[in-house]
Design a protein around this nucleic acid. Sequence first.
DNA 1: TAGAATCAGTTATGCGAATAACTATTATGC
DNA 2: GCATAATAGTTATTCGCATAACTGATTCTA
Lengths: 151, 151
Amino acid sequence: MDFEHADALNQAIRLLSLRHRARAAALLAPLGLHPGQEALLLELARTGPMIQAQLSEALGCEPPSVTLMTRKLEASGHIRRTPAPSDRRASIVELTESGTALAAQVKQLWCALAEETVAGLPAETVAELPGILTTLTSNVDTRRPRQTHGS
Amino acid sequence: MDFEHADALNQAIRLLSLRHRARAAALLAPLGLHPGQEALLLELARTGPMIQAQLSEALGCEPPSVTLMTRKLEASGHIRRTPAPSDRRASIVELTESGTALAAQVKQLWCALAEETVAGLPAETVAELPGILTTLTSNVDTRRPRQTHGS
DNA sequence: TAGAATCAGTTATGCGAATAACTATTATGC
DNA sequence: GCATAATAGTTATTCGCATAACTGATTCTA
């Protein structure tokens, strides 16, 4: 691949990151959330209470990041951390009532953001987009080094 | 769009950001660069000397970010900042010899990264990928609100 | 069962990037 | 020409995310 195409691709990914995150930040700000925190709330809403190591795995970020995010979400009252009975090293993280309500709001925002993001694209492109992006992601994934399609 | 699809898309974009950036960081580290700095070098290599406001526009990030990045790249000797003769507010940023050589290395890495990123995708998907990503980006762009294809 | 390796979580630190607030310069309008 | 607006750049602060180094708890093993 020549540099022109390579740069177009890498630059497009970099800019999409910036803009999509900035747009998410703008939508989440009225809820008092910073981008990244919504993923934690949504994961808890989807899967239920879990320990931080599982959150780290599910969110695809490192444990220290989870420590800081959980601390802030706990301070704002959206999650609760309780010691795990079977493992005194671990903390069980779960949504509070406030957090559950907030997650429901985030879900709506999330749909609006996705629709806004793919506006103007043909439906079939939209349909295959998640798969394409997932392939790209696993191609450059240094944590789980390969395993493209989960078949 | 229902939440399942919306979340799949938003999450895929978020994860691609994290992983692509992390992979870029791993490739750039041996050159002494942090991700984001390579874009500045490549822009200077492509367009030539320019002032920071133009860099901010070209890179799609805010002026304070440019201030910090230019300071660090200047400290490591890859760029040079000289006062603009016609405007005493502005600084002209240009590559040094070291920066020019580094940019050439970055170009090679950039091609390798792009090829790695799109591995396993059909050629026609790869061909339309930059356009799709650019559309997504301008759909959520809060700086230049719309104007998808530059026709 | 004692020692080693592993694992959960935290702290410290550094980076990119953002906003807000500020200085200094240039351009504009009357 | 002078007051006002707009522009270039910086500083201060905040956030997410990363790595490195560490503590404490658990598990494996010899």
